[in-house]
Nucleic acid binder design. Structure first.
Length: 107
DNA sequence: TTCCTGACAGCAT
DNA sequence: CATGCTGCCAGGA
């Protein structure tokens, strides 16, 4: 799979993240069959911010940590109803996507 | 081309 | 879950 195609697929998946949900770089990379290329997803997001064509604010790392040097992201997520923990990390237990199995675990 | 960096992840502690 | 170390891959100097 060429890099350009990889990026395109990344953007397509990012567009499919539902409102009020978040995803991780690794999850996206795995969905594309390239679990080793999580960093490339991050790079794709970096370029995406330049093109302004994808809701990259809904993509965080596997710990729920937000993007460094981008304070606006937290505000955008709060507007979508994303909840944060006291330490400032996204509550992945409640908003991670895709995570169908987690739904029936929630109260 | 080599070396360093980074919007990462997995595993150990 | 938080921290630290290692493995990864693609860019940039």
């Amino acid at each position: 799979m060429k890099r350009i195609e990889f990026y395109k697929n990344v953007y397509k998946l990012v567009h499919e993240i539902p409102m009020g949900r978040v995803s991780t770089y690794g999850a996206i990379a795995q969905m594309l069959g390239q679990p080793q290329c999580a960093r490339m997803v991050g790079q794709a997001m970096h370029y995406a911010s330049f093109f302004e064509d994808a809701p990259c604010h809904r993509v965080v790392n596997h710990q729920g940590r937000l993007v460094p040097h981008w304070g606006e992201q937290k505000e955008l997520l709060l507007k979508e109803g994303i909840t944060f923990k006291d330490n400032g990390c996204v509550d992945l237990k409640r908003h991670l996507w895709p995570e169908s199995s987690i739904l029936y675990i929630l109260p």
